[in-house]
Each structure stands twice: as structure tokens, then as C-alpha cells.
């Protein structure tokens, strides 16, 4: 798919399309994390019996940040873990087997807990579907909620997020890139032309 606004490039130049547009900067991200932390505290009655599970790679880092903010606001720590969903994905055949990330459940497990899944971008919903399947193999949570930094729409499954940092209408020709300090060296959310459509 070629974006309509792209001008024909000089063949000597790499076809890069437009430069990425920054949607959220570092300060926006910090504000959003704080807001979601408050919302979680509110909805889970002070984060009692609540576990944050980040979906690697960036979801894990967001979960850790949320955990820190919740602990700071509530004055007591909240268990944070990571849940790799690769083995539960339904698109392995399409996209190829890839390296697994570490799944790391808090020592108390998830049985009877409020589990808040944390991911960076909510798109088709398939990752969350895989995460729900993985969760059910790991135990029986009392309830599962979903927190995402960006909801870019285009859902393919009946899934919605409980906590959304930013609703960002996108076209399928665009790519939402979430950059995090821990992985990318800086915090930002930007919108770019989809790499594989070039």
C-alpha cells in the first residue's frame, strides 16, 4: 500500500517516505503513566490483590514503570511480571518462528488475582487474545484487565482496553512506533509510514 501523500522519489535516493511524526513526547508519556497508575488504583480499590503483567518487550517496561508509580502513590509495592505470548500467537505461520522472551510471574502467582495486562499498542487484538490463552494455562485470575499506551484502532477481535493512554486514529499504511528509554534510549510515540509498504 502506498500512502497517498507520498511524492515520487528520486530513484537515486532511498524511498523513505515522510519522516516520522512525533505524537507523544517524554513528558506526555510520563503523564500518561501517572494517569493510568491512578486509574488502576481507583478501579482495583487500591491495587489490592492486583498483579501487573507486561507483554514483552515494551509492555514489560511499561508494566514496571506503572508498578513503580502505583507503589509511589499507594505507598506499598505491587507485584509486576512479564508474560511472553509468542507460543500462543496465531500468526506464527505467517510471520515465522521467533526468539522467545522470558515469562516471569510474580512469586504469588496469578490465581485469584486481578491481572492487569500491559502492552504498548493495541491494534488487531490478537496479541491480547494470545495473552488471555497463555494466562489461562498459567492459572485462574479473578479478573483480567488491559492497559495500553496507544490504541490505534483496526480491531480484528472483540477486545477493548480498560486503560488507554491515547486513542490514535491511524491508517493501515501507518506504523505506530513506541520508543522507550530502556530499549530505545528515549521516550516517544511516533507515527511513520509502514516499513513493509515501501
Amino acid at each position: 500500500m502506498t500512502p497517498a501523500y507520498r511524492t515520487p522519489a528520486d530513484p537515486a535516493e532511498p524511498a523513505l517516505g515522510s519522516p516520522p511524526r512525533t505524537i507523544l513526547d517524554e513528558a506526555d508519556l510520563a503523564r500518561i503513566v501517572d494517569r493510568i497508575a491512578h486509574q488502576i488504583l481507583e478501579k482495583t480499590e487500591g491495587a489490592a490483590d492486583t498483579v501487573l503483567l507486561g507483554i514483552p518487550t515494551r509492555g514489560s517496561h511499561l508494566a514496571r514503570r506503572l508498578g513503580e508509580r502505583i507503589a509511589a502513590f499507594a505507598g506499598s509495592p505491587i507485584p509486576v511480571g512479564a508474560l511472553d505470548v509468542t507460543l500462543y500467537r496465531d500468526d506464527l505461520r505467517l510471520r515465522g518462528a521467533r526468539a522467545l522472551e522470558h515469562t516471569d510471574l510474580p512469586p504469588g502467582g496469578i490465581d485469584g488475582q486481578h491481572v492487569v495486562l500491559v502492552d504498548d499498542v493495541l491494534f488487531s487484538g490478537r496479541t491480547v487474545r494470545a495473552a488471555l490463552d497463555a494466562l489461562s494455562d498459567l492459572g485462574r485470575p479473578r479478573a483480567v484487565q488491559l492497559a495500553v499506551l496507544v490504541d490505534r484502532g483496526h480491531r480484528e477481535l472483540p477486545i477493548r482496553a480498560d486503560y488507554v493512554g491515547k486513542n490514535l486514529p491511524t491508517s493501515l499504511a501507518e506504523n505506530v512506533e513506541v520508543l522507550l528509554r530502556e530499549v530505545d534510549g528515549r521516550d516517544a510515540v511516533q507515527l511513520a509510514d509502514r516499513r513493509d509498504s515501501r
Binding site: D84, L87, Y88, L100, E101, H102, T103, D137, L138
Partner: peptide, 16 residues
């Protein structure tokens, strides 16, 4: 290593 970690779970089977 990740596969080995799944062996200690209550449900050992993966849908992969």
C-alpha cells in the same frame, strides 16, 4: 530455557 520453564506450569501443553 523458556521451553523448560513451561514444564513447571500447571498446564504443560502449549498450543504452538
Amino acid at each position: 530455557i523458556e521451553m523448560a520453564a513451561t514444564a513447571s506450569r500447571s498446564v504443560k501443553k502449549l498450543p504452538t
